[in-house]
Amino acid sequence: MGKRPPVYGLDIETDTTVDGLDPGRSRVLAVALSHDGFDEVFDGFEPELLAALDTRLGDLAPGVLATWNGAAFDLPFLADRARRRRVPLGLTLRHDPTIAMRHDPLPGHPGAYRAEWHGHGHVDAYRLYRADVGRTLRVSCSLKSIARLVGLAPVEVDRAGIHDLEREALHAYATSDAHLARVLTQRRWPTAARYVDRLERVLTPPPVALRASVA
């Protein structure tokens, strides 16, 4: 069995002044990265935080980005905001129609995506836990529910009021979610390894492939 690669938890928080679910109307307020050796948050002026995040990911040792519903939300949201802000990212998304959706996709998107970012793979831990824990125990597979189920203590806030949080509270919340995505992925390795995206296996027409860069 090979050595586990570095796992980097990633979570985004969006402007909930409207609803925070439409990248055409809401900006990214913060992005958190979590690793065994650090927790970092990128915030401030959106183009700068997106560029700083991309630079940081490019500098990190190749590993796996762990998200919670990132295939349908975090990553396409970041890609859309980067294109709007004309910030090139090393993020490649490819729509995979075989990924089951329980909710409507982001506005303007056909569904969920497989992804890679610079040298990092991607695993959507939500889909891993939904496939077995959720199905077997018939429990909610929200990040907070699964975290509490296994004895972890998530930071909780009013999701509708993310835009009203003080900077320290916003950082704590985003960091908690990124940390949980990472830890829950690491606890299920090597099972999680089978869920790491393989873009070359996605059989979709070229127009569906999406790269978050601006020429």
Rank of each mutant, 00 (worst) to 15 (best):
M1D: 09
R4G: 00
P6D: 07
V7A: 00
I12T: 03
T14G: 05
D15K: 02
T16A: 06
V18Y: 06
L21H: 03
L21W: 05
G24K: 00
S26A: 14
G37C: 07
F38V: 12
D39M: 00
V41I: 09
V41G: 02
F45G: 02
F45L: 07
F45C: 04
E48N: 02
L50E: 04
L50F: 03
A51S: 11
D54V: 01
D54K: 01
D54G: 05
G58N: 10
D59C: 10
D59Q: 15
A61C: 10
G63E: 07
G63I: 12
V64P: 03
N69W: 04
A72F: 01
D74Q: 05
F77V: 07
L78Q: 01
D80M: 15
A82R: 07
R85T: 10
L89F: 02
L89I: 01
D96C: 11
A100N: 12
M101K: 09
M101R: 14
R102P: 14
R102C: 13
D104T: 15
P105M: 09
G111V: 12
A112M: 09
Y113H: 15
Y113L: 11
R114T: 06
A115H: 06
E116K: 09
W117G: 05
G119N: 08
H120Y: 13
G121T: 08
V123Y: 08
A125D: 04
A125P: 02
Y129K: 00
A131Y: 12
A131V: 02
A131N: 11
D132V: 14
R135M: 14
R138I: 04
V139F: 13
V139K: 09
S140V: 14
S140T: 15
C141H: 10
C141G: 03
L143M: 15
K144W: 12
I146S: 04
R148G: 07
A153E: 15
P154W: 08
P154D: 07
R159Q: 03
A160S: 12
G161V: 00
I162V: 14
H163E: 04
E166W: 01
R167M: 08
E168V: 10
L170P: 06
S176D: 05
D177M: 03
D177T: 05
D177G: 08
H179K: 04
A181Y: 05
A181W: 04
R182C: 10
V183F: 00
R187G: 07
R188P: 03
P190E: 07
R194K: 09
Y195W: 15
Y195D: 14
V196M: 09
D197P: 02
D197V: 02
V202I: 09
L203Y: 10
T204A: 15
P205T: 13
P206E: 08
P206F: 09
V208A: 13
A209R: 12
A212P: 04
